[in-house]
Amino acid sequence: MTVSSQEKDPVRSLWRQGLGVFAENRLALVGVGIFVLLAGLCFLGPLFYHTDQVHTDLTKVHLAPGAGHPLGTDGVGYDQLGRLMLGGQTSIIVGLAAGILATAVGTIWGAIAGFAGGWVDSAMMRVVDAMMSIPALFLFMLLAAIVTPSVSMLIIIIGAFAWLGPARLVRGEALTLRSREYVQAMRAMGGTGGRAVRRHIVPNAIGTVIVNATFQVADAILYVAYLSFLGLGVPPPAANWGGMLSDGLEATYSGYWWLLYPPGIAIILIVLAFNFIGDGLRDAFEVRLRRR
């Protein structure tokens, strides 16, 4: 009788199996591909395609795509392709950072609430409920009007309110996990609540957390777009795709299509990419959990 490789290293095998399932999801791979392409365009593109995104040039306003400016120029003479790269950096950085921040805060909050139970759970989740009852976009607009928008401020503003969803999700997971035998056993052996949360609740909810994180990133990118659309994004010469789309829509009647389509398509692609990736990850983690 031979010992299968799976039995030799079960954890590694689970990850490999999950990866295999993820790889079977073609949309998930497309999502990864789109993200890599867009991230490459935004972060590596400027190394090869040099444009001045600091100084305006009113002699080159609204130039149509052509030699020298493959995607034309905008209303103050910035090269639109260079601007797309610069704007993408902001959108992706804010999206990723705010998504991660929201996921981290939400996971810790939800895990503690769910594990502690009782009045602690009630108090913590009422805070979540109360904050959820306020329209997020309204709060974003209010905060963005009070503070001067910047990349770091956008991350904090969006992250400060986007954590509510993950908190609820993880709290639900924690409620289930805390009654599992291995948690009970650890508690019986004198393990602290903090250790239970750290070593058992969070690691076992990680599948849900990671899947949700991808959606959080997508949502955060859209929130940046919304805020910029409302004129509350990062001020020039910084750029982001939402702000570019807003400018493009204002020029709709003027026929400057190159101001409208590139940022709009980029936002759609990156949001879809994260949704596809999240979908694939969910399938992958479901396989791992089934296996367990």
């Binding site: 949502d219 409208l260 759609i268 949001v271 596809f276 979908d279």
Partner: peptide
């Protein structure tokens, strides 16, 4: 494998697509 995008997740993207289509 079938993709399972939820309505909530798709809504913003659809809204943006709508905005671009309208434009």
């Amino acid at each position: 494998m079938r993709s399972r995008l939820t309505g909530r997740q798709l809504r913003p993207a659809v809204a943006l697509i709508g905005a671009i289509t309208l434009g």
